[in-house]
């Protein structure tokens, strides 16, 4: 069974050939190229990976991702981004998925009522056309909902039960103003001690098309690797979703310095020590291969 890293990012220096947005964390001259990733994967016996677009949602911003997918068609699948407020997201999605290796799209907002007590008409949600397009074209939706959007999800899932959904980063829904970067250049998300998500995203386990990737532990934990304080979250997700709907991921490159790619290949064994060999193999790659339809190597 292949070992598949189900969520990470690569980028190259900003250039006319590969334009991208820049920030303090990914300035124009920083690069975390696919070759560096492949080196880590080879060193730690990881076979395939999901490359998730970052640093810009325009078609042009996706050029480096598209190049990587073209160069290594058997190794990678891609997840794209959609510009916020795009007047015709279906066109954007179609252009990026025309035999490119991009299989789905990542986003965080759904454009429905902020108040869960409001009347819900899912067709009025701003993200409805994206979901409709995903349902028609069999795209995967790669979701990292903002906290104020989490309650909207089951309405969309009910409307589109055929859409494959992957909740990002332990199904956490980050709160506004809770994001920062730490001294290792890693995203940090401030979360409450009480696990709020067991009352929202964990409850989506009932829907068979909803999956979760187990990654980003470093961003939520108050401990160092292996992030034992998140053991309960992992057990909760395993209990709810089962071993067939969880996928391991590293969130490369943010983790390269601390704790390092190699250590993260063992994080599932550390946090879910009672998994059977078969369950562990599923989470480490079997599920990603089946759900995301990775090609045979």
């Amino acid at each position: 069974m292949p070992r598949i890293d189900a969520h990470l990012h690569v980028f190259t220096k900003a250039s006319a050939e590969f334009p991208r947005e820049i920030s303090d964390v990914w300035p124009a001259d920083r690069e975390e190229p696919v070759e560096k990733l492949l080196g880590e994967m080879e060193k730690h016996q990881i076979d395939q990976a999901v490359l998730v677009q970052m640093a810009g949602a325009s078609i042009a911003n996706h050029r480096y991702l598209l190049q990587c997918l073209k160069d290594y068609p058997n190794r990678f699948l891609g997840i794209g981004l959609i510009p916020e407020g795009h007047p015709n997201p279906a066109d954007h999605m179609a252009e990026l998925t025309d035999d490119t290796g991009i299989i789905g799209f990542r986003f965080s907002t759904f454009g429905g009522p902020r108040d869960i007590f409001a009347k819900m008409d899912v067709r009025e949600f701003a993200a409805y056309p994206i979901w409709e397009c995903a349902a028609e074209r069999d795209y995967v939706l790669w979701l990292y909902p903002n906290a104020i959007n989490a309650h909207l999800l089951p309405y969309l899932i009910q409307e589109f039960p055929q859409v494959r959904i992957v909740l990002n980063h332990l199904a956490v829904c980050p709160g506004a103003g809770k994001f920062s970067w730490d001294e290792f250049g890693r995203p940090q998300i401030q979360v409450t001690g009480y696990n709020l998500f067991m009352h929202t995203t964990y409850r989506l386990a009932r829907f068979e098309n909803v999956n979760v990737h187990l990654s980003g532990q470093y961003a939520f934990s108050k401990e160092e690797f292996p992030y034992k304080d998140l053991g309960g979250w992992h057990h909760g997700l395993l209990s709810g979703f089962g071993a067939k709907r969880l996928m391991w991921a590293t969130d490369f490159p943010w983790i390269l310095e601390e704790p390092g790619y190699g250590k993260l290949t063992t994080v599932i064994e550390e946090l879910l020590p009672n998994l059977s060999e078969a369950e562990l193999a599923d989470i480490m790659g079997g599920n990603a291969k089946r759900i995301l339809r990775f090609p045979d190597l």
Binding site: A176, T200, R203
Partner: peptide, 11 residues
């Protein structure tokens, strides 16, 4: 508080 990620969204 829900928006800030400090309260449960469903009750």
């Amino acid at each position: 508080r829900v928006e800030a990620g400090e309260s449960v969204a469903t009750f």
